[in-house]
């Protein structure tokens, strides 16, 4: 910014009737506007961290201290990786802006409670290193770093990333070692009768943040209240999932799970409130946002029902991330007073 600070001798003009103290006041010249609101990138990021706290607390409640350990490890490795990259590239150290904390928390949220610590570190390094810093750091990344980290772990540890454990709160005497998520049960066992209430509260097997819908919605509402997310994104995504899955459910309720099941199972809530809404990797225009959430919502359901994996939220969002620059370019709003239709 060409903000020039002029020293006092330049502002002294004709002899002034004012007391000499005025000479101590410096005139600054910058271009308009001279007035900015009090938002900042760290403020937004720290609010997202706050919004993730209920989900964090819920994961600790359901999965015990092991969950907390995973979260701490992920956050710490994300911060360290960020620091190392910024240091190495002689960039200003901005690890306190909160964005790496979010990536760490979100990555942990996508892992099962029993996930090995070393794997968590690896995933974090990949998320920040490859997912964010190699693109140029915050704001330049195309993909959501946490999701990219999770996808990387999925490829590296296909078994461990899907080795779920039952929450502490569930008394499963039999088969206590590995558990199946409601989505996996629906997909591979045709079991559609997981109590909805358990899924809403979080009393099911799954990754740390996949379980308690209530805690996530609470955080999401907090962000909405603060004005950091647009209704369109989470509700459009969830709405599409519900509407699209309803088509199948209505055609054969014994074969396909209900829309409510889809909404509360797996990562739909976490994805809708914290990943679809990631500012950097979602479109900025209204139309672009609609396209983004609708296509991603349909994809998520298609993968869940017909893909080889039980969960499709992660890939649906990552896939759409890739199209964001294109969406932004081709869905520009109509310029005020422009007769032409939208430019394509």
């Amino acid at each position: 910014m060409d903000q020039k600070t002029l020293d006092t001798k330049e502002i002294k003009t004709a002899p002034t009737p004012e007391p000499p103290s005025q000479a101590a006041t410096k005139l600054v010249v910058s271009s308009s506007p001279h007035f900015l609101n009090n938002e900042s990138v760290p403020k937004i990021m720290h609010n997202v961290v706050t919004a993730l706290l209920p989900a964090t607390a819920a994961s600790v409640y359901f999965f015990g201290w092991r969950a907390l350990l995973l979260i701490i490890v992920c956050v710490a490795s994300c911060l360290l990786t960020e620091y190392a990259f910024q240091k190495k590239r002689n960039k200003p150290i901005k690890i306190y802006d909160g964005s790496a904390i979010i990536t760490g928390m979100l990555l942990a949220m996508t892992l099962p409670a029993g996930f090995p610590i070393f794997g968590a570190v690896l995933g974090s390094v990949f998320a920040i290193g490859v997912g964010k810093q190699l693109f140029g750091g915050l704001g330049f990344n195309i993909f959501n770093p946490a999701l990219l980290g999770r996808a990387f772990l999925m490829a590296t540890y296909p078994v461990l990333t899907t080795t779920w454990v039952w929450p502490r709160t569930m008394e499963k005497a039999v088969d206590a070692v590995t558990a199946a998520t409601p989505l996996a049960m629906a997909k591979f066992e045709g079991k559609l009768d997981v109590p909805l209430m358990d899924m809403i509260l979080g009393n099911t097997a799954g990754s740390l943040g996949e379980t308690s819908a209530i805690a996530i919605i609470l955080g999401g509402l907090y962000l909405r209240y603060k004005g950091y997310i647009n209704w369109k994104l989470p509700l459009g995504y969830l709405g599409t999932i519900a509407a699209f899955s309803a088509i199948f459910w209505l055609s054969d309720p014994t074969k396909y799970p209900s829309p409510l099941f889809h909404l509360f199972a797996g990562g739909a809530m976490l994805g809708a409130w914290f990943m679809v809404t990631d500012m950097v990797t979602s479109p900025v225009t209204s139309l672009g946002q609609w396209i983004f959430v609708i296509v991603a919502g349909i994809l998520a359901v298609v993968i869940r029902l017909f893909g080889g994996l039980p969960e499709g939220v992660m890939y649906s969002i990552l896939f759409m991330n890739a199209f964001v620059p294109l969406l932004n370019k081709h869905t520009r709003p109509k310029v005020f007073g422009e007769a032409r239709a939208q430019k394509v």
Partner: peptide
């Protein structure tokens, strides 16, 4: 000076106009 003058010390921007579109002045003359 008829408005008590500027606050003392520190930096100020003196604008012709309001804060959103006004032009900052390099001098009070």
């Amino acid at each position: 000076s008829q408005c008590g003058g500027l606050v003392e010390g520190g930096e100020v921007e003196v604008l012709n106009g309001g804060p959103m579109m006004g032009i900052a002045q390099p001098t009070l003359a």
